[in-house]
Amino acid sequence: MSCVYNVFESGQGQIVSGRVVDMAGRPMDAVEVTLETAGDPPRTCTTPDNGIFAFAAVPSWADCTLTARKPPHTFHRLHAATTAGGIYASGNCWGLEFRSGAGGPPTAHDQDVSVVAGHSVDIALAALDDGLPDPPGRMQYRIVTGPRHGRLIDPATGQIEQYPHTLADDGSKVCYQPCSYYAGIDQFAFVADDGGIPPAAGPPSFAMALRSPRPAGGTSISTAPSRTTARATS
């Protein structure tokens, strides 16, 4: 017995069908959809590339509960009810839609940082979160690459020796100490993770540049994802 979306090839009963999409409305594959009705064992199917799911031979007058699962996406539970149908009416339940509630990874804020050679500076990492998943996970910051002309210190664990490094105790601050002999631009990169969709593999979502001028002056650094500009001040 099989069901191709809303075409019931054989057997008796009703059809419960719909699709699974992401936040942008694009079909999602490999989502496990489960249908539960009173008195019957749960039934499960997995969506193909078009995001469609369909269950055949569902009893008439059945109250149905549907759930969808594909970590790290989140979906609201759906409820549907079939009827008996007849010559001029259908007892099927069509057009159900699961929409992913998981947003993208957090987006880092721009910020200005100043540091003088031979001194250290505490840097508060920041990222904009979309509030998903709900309830939201803890925001964690992971240093992907460290500076070449200085060192980073995690306030909770001390000097960071290996990268990538996740700040301990859900911390959001890191201390940068440039080498005492160095004057110039240094940088490190980090990503933020809110427990939803993980940061994509590849280039870090945020790169921070630091200029260590000579003690006589200071430099304000404007940073942004994938680009960095410097504004010198006296």
Rank of each mutant, 00 (worst) to 15 (best):
P105A: 13
P164W: 05
T166D: 09
A62T: 03
A183C: 15
T228S: 10
L152F: 05
S100M: 03
S226R: 12
P42M: 10
P106D: 04
R43W: 09
L132S: 15
H73W: 11
P42Y: 06
R211D: 08
T107V: 15
R214Y: 12
D154M: 04
F55I: 06
A207V: 13
Y163C: 08
T82Q: 04
R26L: 13
E161F: 07
Q12G: 06
Y163H: 00
V4N: 14
P203Q: 06
P155V: 00
T67K: 14
A127F: 00
T82P: 03
T223F: 02
R211S: 11
G158M: 10
V21C: 04
V116A: 11
Q111H: 13
D112H: 10
P178Y: 01
D130V: 02
T34W: 05
N92I: 01
L152I: 05
T47Q: 03
P204L: 00
E9I: 12
A84N: 11
E32W: 03
D194W: 02
F55R: 00
R211C: 13
G103H: 07
S172N: 12
Y163W: 10
L66M: 08
S114E: 14
T67P: 09
Q159Y: 09
A168V: 12
G91K: 00
D170L: 11
T145F: 11
D193G: 05
K70P: 03
P203A: 11
D29M: 04
T65P: 04
D154R: 05
A201M: 11
T219R: 09
N6L: 11
Y141H: 10
Q187Y: 14
G91D: 00
P135Y: 14
S205M: 09
A126Q: 14
G51F: 06
